[in-house]
Each structure stands twice: as C-alpha cells, then as structure tokens.
Design a protein around this nucleic acid. Structure first.
Lengths: 238, 238
DNA sequence: GAATGATTTGACTATTCCGTGACAGCAGGA
DNA sequence: TCCTGCTGTCACGGAATAGTCAAATCATTC
C-alpha cells in the first residue's frame, strides 16, 4: 500500500477545539489542516483531497450541514459532524446531508480518534480491497470480547452490562493491549475535554469494572492489571 | 535526515532548575536557551524556532498555560509542562492549552530526558516518516527484554515484577549498556533532584534487582556488574 | 595471607500508593 | 414529582515500596 500520511480537515469556529483536535490527531500521525468558517472550509475541501473532514455543525456563515451538502456535489470525502449537546435532534438531518458519523460535544479525545480511525479504515478498505475485508470493530481476547458496533462486552461467554464510562474505559485499554496508561492519561483521553477531575475517579471505575468482570469471569477481570506507581493496563494472557 | 542540533527552550523562574535542565540536556547533545519569565519566553518562542519547549507552569507574570496558549496562535512547537506536585489538578487543563506532555516536580533528570527524547522522536517521525514508523521503545538483550510501553521486564523468558525504582534503575542502565555509572551519578539521574540520600541506597536497589533477576535468570542477573571502586554497569554478554 | 577499604546483605522504619466503601450530586425515566 | 442508576469525591486502612544503617563479606594490595 502506498503509505501516505492521511490528511484531515478540522472545521470549527472555536480555536480551542481546533487546537485540541489537531493535537490529538497529529499524535496519531495524521496531517491536519484547519478552517474556522463554512466558506473557507468548503473551498479547502473542494480544492484539496482530504481523507476526512471533521465538521462543526454550528458555524458562522454557512453551517456544517450546508457545507456538507454542497461538498457532496463534488466529492464523497467522508465527514464526521461535531454537534453541541442541544443539537442532537439534528442527527438525522446530518445523515441526510451526507454525514458519515457524528460526535457530540464535549467529546472525549478517545471517542473522536476512534471514529476517525474507523471511518478511515473503512474508506481505505473499500478503496483498495474488494468487498469489506476485515473491517470488523471487534476486539477479541481469550476471555473477553468487545463488539464496538453493538457496544457489547462478553466475558467468559457471558454478556455483561457495563455503564457508558465503564465501557469506554475498557475499550480504550483494549485498543492498546499491554500498554500502561497513567491515571492522568486515562482522564485526559477517556473523559471529555471539559472534565478536570480527581485522579482517584479512575481507580473507582477500574474497581467497578473489575467487579463486574469478576462476577462472570475472573480470568477476564485479571486482565486489568495495576502497574504500581504507574497506572493500569489490559494485559493479554499468554 | 539533515542532522541539525535540536534546540530546546527552558523556561523556569528558579535558576537552579534551569541550570539543572541545561546541564543534563546539553549532555544529551541539545542546544539550550533559557527564559525566566513568561513574557521573555513567549517572545523567544515566537522569534526563534525551537524544537521543544520545557515550560514551568507557575511563572511570574504570564503563567505557563497562558504562554502555551498564546504561542499556539503562531506555532505548534511541542511543549512539555513542568508542574509542582500540588498543582496536579491543573494537569489536564495544561493539556487543553496545547501541552504535549508534562512532568511533575521534583522530577528525575532521567525522566525529563526520556520524555524529551520521546517527543522529539515523535515529531521528527511525523515530519519525515509515515505514521507509526518503527518507534518501538523496547530494549533487547540476550537474556533480558525491557518493554517501555508495557512497563514490563522479561528475563530468560520469564516476566518479573519490578518496583518503580527497580525498573527505573534497570532501564537507566539499559539505555547505556556497558557504560559504568558511579553511585553518585545514579542518585543524581535516577532519583529526583531533591533527594540527597545515602549512597548505599543504590546498593540496596541493585541487590533487590539482582535477586529478582537471579530468581528467573542468572544470566540476566550477571549482566548487572559491579566495577570495583567505581560503580555499576549493565554489561552486554558477547 | 593479613590488612584495608569497598561492597553486599539483612533488618528495621518511614513513606507512598492503592483498593474500597460510603455518600452526594445529577440526569433521565416513570 | 419521585425513583433509579450512573458518576465523581474523598478518606481510611492496608499493602507495597523506599531508605537507613550496621554487620558481614569480599576484592585488592602488599
């Protein structure tokens, strides 16, 4: 495969949000371009060939939906829409306008990165391979199965009901198995960007997660490992 | 790659800290510039093109967060924030302002250098290579494997559980194999800069390290060599 | 092989960190 | 409105780790 850096256009009128997204996405290795209003965004999106566009719904001038709709007359560049909390009812509209996915503000970096990767994986898969080759979002371990699409977790053969945060935490650890994350990192990545909370919050969620896992599969629970003085990781048993 | 010397701006109002950082970073081959307040720092950071900025959070005048945020209107220079222990709650905020990483005071030189290298490696990697190029942090020896991400040490095929200090010590020795470090050097580099303890502390940690290694792999334990009258080194077997 | 000085070791104490439970605030649904 | 889960906070008790020190051991030199 031609290993080009994938480029993403970030469109938001708030500088803070653009910076945040740029930082996280650059860390993932993407090339980032920015626009702060609809006109510029549309122009750039038509001129350049981005692999993906992150598009705020509420924009001065032409709004996100409009940008997306007009862009669609020229290109099929994938679009992830960013919507503020109250605007959720617009979801369906978003999809009609040709949006591929949407993320509600205030999002967690984890959420955005995950969606971005999912979309890019999908589109590069349809571009280079024949039928939807392995584009499954499932994460499979010996005693643990995470089905992202269904938002379902199965441990030792038993499905378990996780709360949103528990799921997000587990999912985030599971994406990078064996990698240790400090509590700070987890707070930064898994919680939304407006949250400035106590480090111990992480401990509490880990505790609850372990409890639930342990009830149906001690093996699965044992995968969540404490690294003393450092943080937590999801350890893959050999 | 054009092999230029990378330059770093060190910002802290305490002269002692600036001197400390300068000394250690120059030893690593970086060019160091200093600033002792926010205004100067911002000015320098905008005028010059540093590869990295080490920025204290608490500064007279404009504080670190502010400096970082304003700088971001011009440049994307990577920033590592230095925060005192009590300021921990501000950590996450720092990240939002555009910080790439942070280090808590009192840090150990080893820690700072390690982060600096990681960030610079990353930014030069995204600039010249495609994403996720081989930036693995693993250190491999015949009987010993150190995986930084997983914070895992494997000796003779067996994983061993090390305490933070044991890990740090081993990791530090392993970064410069065959180089002898005096106890003084180890105390200065591996321990934080406020620690003025007994030289024998090093011996004790070496002892514990050897014990643990020896239990699963005498070959690995034998790598930690005493150089009589000088110090310790991690010797690579031929 | 004795003297000397450096290192290893074990035991003890101090310190730091983590797991847990209890509780309060919130949001969403009945 | 009350009820019900979900979250986040906090403090305490226990566990793990770190540091000190002196006695025992070892390497080196004469």
């Amino acid at each position: 495969m031609s290993e080009n850096i994938e480029s993403i256009l970030v469109v938001d009128d708030e500088e803070r949000i653009r910076r945040l997204l740029r930082m996280y996405l650059e860390k993932e290795g993407y090339r980032i371009d920015e626009a702060e209003d609809g006109e510029t965004a549309l122009q750039k999106a038509i001129d350049q060939d981005y692999d993906l566009i992150l598009l705020d719904l509420m924009l001065p001038g032409i709004d996100g939906l409009e940008v997306c709709a007009r862009l669609r007359q020229f290109k099929a560049t994938p679009v992830i829409m960013l919507t503020a909390k109250g605007e959720e009812s617009n979801r369906v509209q978003g999809f009609e306008a040709g949006t591929d996915d949407y993320v509600v503000k205030p999002f967690s970096p984890r959420e955005v990165i995950y969606r971005v990767k999912a979309i890019l994986r999908r589109s590069s898969a349809t571009a280079y391979l024949s039928k939807g080759a392995n584009t499954s979002n499932n994460i499979v371990f010996p005693h643990l199965l995470i089905e992202s699409d269904a938002h379902r977790v199965t441990a030792g053969g038993h499905e378990i009901a996780l709360t949103p945060k528990e799921y997000e935490l587990l999912h985030y650890l599971a994406i990078s198995p064996d990698k240790v994350f400090s509590r700070e990192e987890l707070l930064k990545d898994v919680w939304n960007y407006e949250f400035f909370g106590d480090l111990r919050t992480v401990d509490t969620h880990v505790k609850r997660l372990r409890e639930k896992l342990n009830k149906v599969s001690p093996d699965a629970a044992a995968m969540i490992t404490t690294v003393w003085g450092v943080g937590y990781k999801l350890e893959v048993p050999k």
